[in-house]
Write a protein that binds this DNA or RNA. Structure first.
Length: 416
RNA sequence: GUGGGUGUAGCUCAGUCGGUAGAGCAACGGAUUGUGGCUCCGUUGGUCGUGGGUUCAAAUCCCAUCAUCCACCCCA
């Protein structure tokens, strides 16, 4: 324990093992299945990028860039950053390969760890995992609707109980300035009722006052101007069509005009899905980012995407009581002078398609049976010098204690 | 970065007024020499997170520090 030399995992980094690993595996498998079902293709992107990619992509002034990045110099003195999110890397790929010019419609997904230097708490880690989806070159509410459809299908499939879809439209470069102005004017009038942070935000980023958790700020924003009343014609049409088709497709959502999202690049549609306990209960978040490709040096191509917080899904599914370990079909308890039959028998059984485990070190039979029982094996093959060269398998059923001799060919019939 | 809670065996925890450390579970062994569960017996396992201070004496009181949890900021 407290030894000076005790080596432990870095702060905010954790091991995902056993049951958690099984859940992780299941939700990743299903994510791949559903993403591909909706026409997305996997891309593996690097875990590190040039620091500038993130500062330009996410926004110099964002908290992520300001204080949450793992940034260091490589051996040649270049500034490198462990990715704090996935979108920037995918956009970099998209532009670097010239896809914005030559093949602009791309539907991609990625999975993997992200890194942010934050103080850990429930549902938040310094290394955390995301499944991300990005669609380029498509500007239509139908994409947004199809994506929400996919997410609902996916969340249902993995067993998330009551996901709450929150949706908002935060306007575009045409209409948001007018709203910002109106909001600023309103907030100025009530500045003395706001928390210190929000007083700052009135000038720097008034939208973010809307999702402050402070009760007083909430009371103020409750009566603030509604972005919905300021949308330009095209944004309004987009929003109406999206909500209309979601309603008619019976995809449940609630409009939340206080949902604004933290990353600078979002326009129009933003959405989150919430569920579970604790303050960090956003299971995923995303939206439309029509200006991002251009901001990173590509052509003005529309984009749409989201990221799922895998750790939070794992946490939610952890208390469902499912996901027991997949045991091997058979456990071999052995006691042999010549060890060759052990490998022969297990290999033969495995060729029959049965998974087989045994303890490779020499132990008493009692010890091995104890182990098999503890692990929950229902069937044990007993292999001693007596059985070593016999064609038959000495099979013990742990439930009843019955023992039978069977030929390998019909052993399956006994594994019930 | 800010605030609060918690650090005693692998795990869950007890430890009185300050008197030098305990239980249950787990692991391992035995009762049962080729047979698990139930029972009984036994064994292993601790610089009480770390460092300093007060004291004749500190797991206990004080300070610092680290870790962890929860919350804030922010985000998945």
């Amino acid at each position: 324990m407290g030894e000076v030399f005790m080596i432990q995992a870095l702060r905010g980094m954790r091991d995902i093992a056993g049951r958690e690993a099984r859940i992780f595996q299941m939700i990743e498998e299903k994510a791949r299945y559903y993403f591909e079902l909706y026409g997305y293709e996997e891309i593996k992107i690097p875990i590190m990028e040039m620091t500038e990619l993130f500062s330009r992509g996410i926004g110099d002034m964002s908290d992520i860039v300001q204080k949450e990045m793992y940034t260091f110099e490589d051996r040649k003195g270049r500034s490198i950053t462990l990715r704090p999110e996935g979108t920037a890397g995918v956009v970099r790929y998209y532009i670097e390969k010239g896809l914005d010019k030559n093949d602009p419609v791309q539907k991609l997904f990625y999975t993997g760890p992200m890194f942010r230097y934050e103080r850990p708490q429930k549902g938040r880690f310094r290394q955390f995992y995301q499944f991300g989806v990005e669609a380029f070159g498509i500007e239509s509410y139908l994409l947004d609707a199809d994506t929400l459809d996919m997410l609902v299908a996916y969340f249902t499939a993995i067993g998330i109980k009551n996901p709450v879809v929150k949706l908002n439209n935060i306007g575009c470069s045409q209409c948001r300035p007018a709203y910002n102005g109106a909001l600023k004017a309103y907030l100025h009038k009530h500045a003395d009722e706001l928390c210190p942070d929000c007083r700052q935000r009135i000038e720097t980023n008034p939208l973010r006052v809307l999702d402050c958790k402070n009760e007083k700020c909430r009371a103020v924003t409750q009566l603030s101007p509604d972005i919905g009343d300021f949308l330009c014609d095209s944004c309004r049409k987009y929003d109406e069509e999206l909500r209309d088709i979601l309603t008619r497709r019976s995809i449940p959502f609630e409009r939340d005009r206080f949902l604004v999202r933290g990353l600078d690049y979002y326009v129009r549609t933003v959405f989150e899905i919430h569920g579970g306990e604790g303050a960090q209960n956003a299971l995923m978040g995303g939206g439309r980012y029509d200006g991002l490709v251009e901001a990173l040096g590509g052509r003005p191509v529309p984009g749409f995407g989201f990221a799922i917080g895998v750790d939070r899904l794992v946490a939610l599914l952890s208390d469902t009581g499912l996901f027991e370990k997949n045991l091997s079909d058979l456990f071999i308890a052995w006691s042999l002078t010549d060890k060759v039959p052990l490998l022969e028998k297990s290999s033969a059984l495995r060729k029959c398609g049965l998974s087989v485990e045994f303890l490779a070190d020499e132990r008493s039979l009692k010890n091995q049976l104890k182990y098999a029982h503890k692990k929950g094996y229902r069937f044990v093959v007993l292999l001693g010098d007596d059985e070593a060269y016999s064609e038959e398998i000495h099979l013990k059923k742990m439930d009843s204690g019955d023992e039978v001799y069977v030929s390998p060919i019909d052993i399956r019939e006994h594994l019930i």
